[in-house]
Computed example of a mutant assay.
Amino acid sequence: MIDWKDYSIGGHRITCPACGRGGIDRTMGLTMNAAGSGVCHCFRCDFTESYRPEGSARLAVPPKPFVEAMPSPKSARLSAYGYKLWQACEPLADIALDYLTARRCRVPPANGDLRWHASLKHPSGYAGPCLVALITHAVTSEPLSLHRTWIRGDGRKADVEPPRLLLRGHRKQGGVIRLWPTESATAGLGITEGIETALSLAWAYEPVWACIDAGNLAALPVLPGVQSLVIGADNDPAGIAAAYTCARRWSDANVEVHVTRQPANDLNDVLMEAA
């Protein structure tokens, strides 16, 4: 099901041929080695296929059958483990600053909810530098979860799959990452989906918060005291729809709203290409 000859040596993220939803849906990790053989695995449905160049031998493992089950309950607030990890993180420094600088991001203030850990373990077994962000409820500010991004000092993500993870068993719905503290949002606020995108918008407008994904951005409630909202929209169907859903709600509440548009996927892509 995979046209292996289309891929060069190294790691790739592709659309799963079994459960792929098209567009930028890239849930499958594919790796080609120097000998020309390869393996791929979907992180959503577990479809697996391997390839060897001699005789084009393949072994395909079908995805797991769908079994409807009751969803597992998620913690309504940050767990004791989450608090312990958050307290073990430090203010941005060293490789964390190198990463943000290489990504052309503005460094947020020290009292924002972005820190770093010098050697955080990934589920794959890898341990290395990681940006750690506290997710808090947009209205109540109650801690909900943590967002982790394993990084390199050259501005790239660490070579792990996936390089970004939320805490397992924690909710993120209704949450935001307050890159600037709540008290700084006295009149205006900038919002985006991702952290790097928000820190790109911050060059032109602050304070900024990251909403984690399109669903959270679309559902962001109108916050008291905010008179102007700037939305850094991702230039994909989900991002655009989320931005305008949010914009309409805030505009109906008599808030001044601006939505950015750019040819690339997000504002950070624009800055990286310009550099």
Score class of each variant (00 low, 15 high):
Leu146Trp: 07
Leu85Phe: 05
Leu131Cys: 14
Leu120His: 04
Cys89Gln: 00
Ile151Val: 00
Leu201Ala: 15
Lys157Thr: 07
Ile14Glu: 14
Asp269Thr: 05
Gly55Thr: 05
Asp3Ile: 00
Arg26Asp: 10
Ala158Tyr: 06
Val222Ala: 09
Pro263Gly: 03
Gly82Tyr: 08
Pro73Met: 09
Ala241Asp: 09
Ser119Lys: 14
Ile151His: 11
Ile2Asn: 00
Pro62Asn: 08
Val222Asn: 02
His258Trp: 08
Trp180Phe: 15
Ala275Gly: 11
Asp269Glu: 11
Asp3Trp: 06
Val132Glu: 07
Val39Ser: 10
Ala241Leu: 03
Asp94Met: 08
Val257Cys: 05
Val160Leu: 11
Thr260Arg: 08
Thr31Asn: 11
Arg77Tyr: 04
Ala187Glu: 09
Asp6Met: 13
Asn268Arg: 14
Val270Arg: 07
Pro143Asp: 01
Pro53Trp: 06
Ala110Asp: 12
Pro53Gln: 11
Glu256Gln: 13
Glu193Lys: 06
Glu142Pro: 07
Ser56Ala: 14
Leu120Met: 03
Leu114Tyr: 05
Cys45Ile: 04
Thr192Lys: 14
Met1Ile: 03
Leu179Lys: 01
Pro123Glu: 10
Gln87Val: 13
Val39Glu: 08
Ala241Gln: 03
Leu146Met: 04
Glu193Ile: 01
Leu78Thr: 13
Lys74Asn: 00
Met272Lys: 04
Tyr7Phe: 12
Ala210Lys: 01
Pro263Val: 02
Arg249Ser: 06
Trp180Val: 08
Ser37Trp: 13
Pro17Gln: 06
Cys211Val: 00
Met32Thr: 05
His12Asn: 07
Phe47Asn: 09
His117Ser: 07
Arg178Ser: 15
Ser56Pro: 02
Ala242Gly: 00
Pro63Val: 09
Ile240Tyr: 01
Ile95Met: 12
Ala214Pro: 01
Thr149Leu: 00
Ile231Phe: 01
Tyr244Val: 04
Lys5Arg: 15
Arg171Val: 15
Ser75Glu: 15
Gln87Ala: 14
Ile24Trp: 10
Ala242Arg: 03
Thr31Met: 14
Tyr83Thr: 06
Arg156Gln: 15
Cys246Phe: 04
Ile24Cys: 03
Ala34Trp: 03
Pro17His: 02
Ala60Ile: 02
Gly112Tyr: 03
Tyr81Ala: 07
Pro129Cys: 01
Asp266Ala: 08
Lys5Pro: 00
Ser228Asn: 03
Leu220Ile: 05
Asn111Phe: 07
Arg77Pro: 00
Asn254Ala: 14
Ile212Ser: 00
Gly239Pro: 04
Phe66Asp: 15
Ser75His: 11
Val132Lys: 08
Asp154Phe: 04
Cys45Phe: 06
Asn111Pro: 09
Phe66Thr: 12
Tyr81Leu: 09
Thr101Ile: 15
Ala241Ile: 01
